[in-house]
Write a protein that binds this DNA or RNA. Structure first.
Lengths: 180, 180, 180, 180
DNA sequence: AATGAATGAGTCTTCATTCAT
DNA sequence: CATGAATGAAGACTCATTCAT
């Protein structure tokens, strides 16, 4: 049994990723999650903004999980990158080629809120730190590793955008050649 | 005397870039452009969508201009990349660190429209082609040049996002070290 | 205390009857009913169309009530018809000679919607069935009764139009001589 | 070569008949008639209202033409009625069962204008006079003829409405049995 | 803890008309 | 005569939120 709170955050995350923060109405989220109107403000006192932050947290955790799953059994750093990119490409395809980066679509989709940008910054920093840690584990120096992580992250973020414009995830699968 | 049509597209472009397609209301655009409500549909019969496409075209042309201005007087490819990234960083700073890529914020900001994605794809393709042409001019092979252009483009697109989360354009200025 | 829902349907019905579906704006209905804008879509999720269907149902029930009130105490069929026509004429006069048939003005006033026409058909069929039932009660055969009901209904519907053009309900009062 | 004025009146008449006066925008009429926006007020200084009156006149003339064509070669009055009703039913079918009486849909479709009701009254009076004249020609007394004409007219007007609700013109073809 | 009604500012768009060229 | 630009009020509808139950 999934709690109402989590059901809401999951559904919201999926919709924000597809249509952006301002492209989704609370009524749609509520309807698709099967949650009555009045319930939302019990679980998310600050309403839509709280919901977006929760959704971004959930999505971020999932990305971290994918990062670790990709690098843990890898032969070397490049092998980890390759697995990671293919996993994301597959994820993109499952969503019919019409989703953006789950956290930036949610937290930058038209909101000027400082709290959103702070949250986004720390999420991104966390991803890069995790990638860098794996790079170190595979023998890179601290400096090299940060460099590698940043290079991968930036290209990846760019790939979400280009892949969406093209409805084609190939660009993600081509990333290892570009950044390793 | 700037025509009503262009006044609207410019103002719309600026606002979309800041708040995304769904984050901006027509009333705000109209008010800031000093154009009465009924006039919009004369110049843009399909309304907001037409306006967004026009705004994206304008923004794209400006980016192409910056690309050429950066590479034309450059000593070598890397020098051109450096100038380009610094120009964009400056542009970002002028807008108070709170703007996204002008075309993707406009055309992906929460719209499912196929026409938007097609337009975005061809704009991106145009940018990469231009960059690649300069790389060829500086001695790279066709293959190398496409590789370089794609690497620059993806990282750049990612930088818009990260810079915005951090309210800091340094990441853009660091790009040459990452992609050259 | 009349519920918001019913207050809306009554006011809408009155206005549609006078100006037709497309001749009435929601804002006018809301204003005259003293109901705030946002409330409407609670009670009528499909908006104006739902409101029109509800208004037509209300009006239809009222007509059925008048039919029964006219025939129940009548001496014979023709006597019932006479009372019925005079009641409608009076109703027409009260509205200053400027209303159409309450259901056709509402449901045919410029709407292409299939649901509207289906609803209208079943309302009309209900009226004719009721009139025919009374005719049978007064001794007519099933066939004769259907014939009578149809003849009365069609002329009556035509009378709404002619009376309105003439601002004069006499044509309604003359109906018994025409159809009996 | 049809003049702009007539082209407009014809197209307007067709649209008003289908959607009512308030259900049709000038832009649609202009577009379908292939007439530029600014031209309308040259031919119809009072705009939409003038256009509706002209359209109703055209439609009325056509109905008179049909009346005469039906009765002129008829064997007796009832034969003329039958032909007339069948012609109208055919006309209704051609328009896909979704048109109202061409003049009342145009002039009562949600307009409170006195000029409209006066025009409508005189059009209806003209139709009845014409039918009555034919009835006299076939041997009816003046009084009988007026009675017959009124009976036919009212039922016919009612038939437009019922036929539309049912998307079925059979009711029109059944009229002779009802009114003769 | 949960909920459905209420709210009014907001959304994008179309309206019939006027006017300068 | 002809026309495209201009106009702002009005159109139907959705928004995120509050509140009494």
């Amino acid at each position: 049994m999934t709690s109402t709170r989590i059901k809401l955050a999951i559904e919201a995350g999926y919709l924000f990723q597809k249509k952006g923060y301002n492209g989704v109405g609370l009524s749609e989220i509520l309807r698709k999650a099967g949650v009555p109107k009045g319930s939302l403000y019990h679980h998310f006192p600050n309403g839509k903004a709280d919901l977006a932050l929760a959704a971004a947290d959930l999505a971020s955790a999932e990305v971290l999980r994918i990062i670790n799953a990709s690098f843990d059994g890898a032969a070397d750093y490049r092998d980890g990158v390759t697995t990671f990119c293919h996993k994301l490409a597959k994820y993109f395809d499952i969503h019919e080629g019409n989703v953006g980066c789950p956290v930036s679509a949610t937290l930058l989709g038209g909101q000027d809120d400082d709290a959103f940008r702070d949250a986004l910054d720390s999420i991104f920093t966390g991803w890069m730190a995790q990638i860098a840690a794996h790079a170190v584990r595979f023998g890179q120096s601290e400096t090299q590793a940060n460099h590698s992580a940043r290079r991968l992250f930036l290209s990846l973020e760019g790939s979400w955008t280009l892949a969406r414009a093209r409805r084609d995830s190939d660009i993600m699968r081509a990333l290892p050649d570009l950044v390793c």
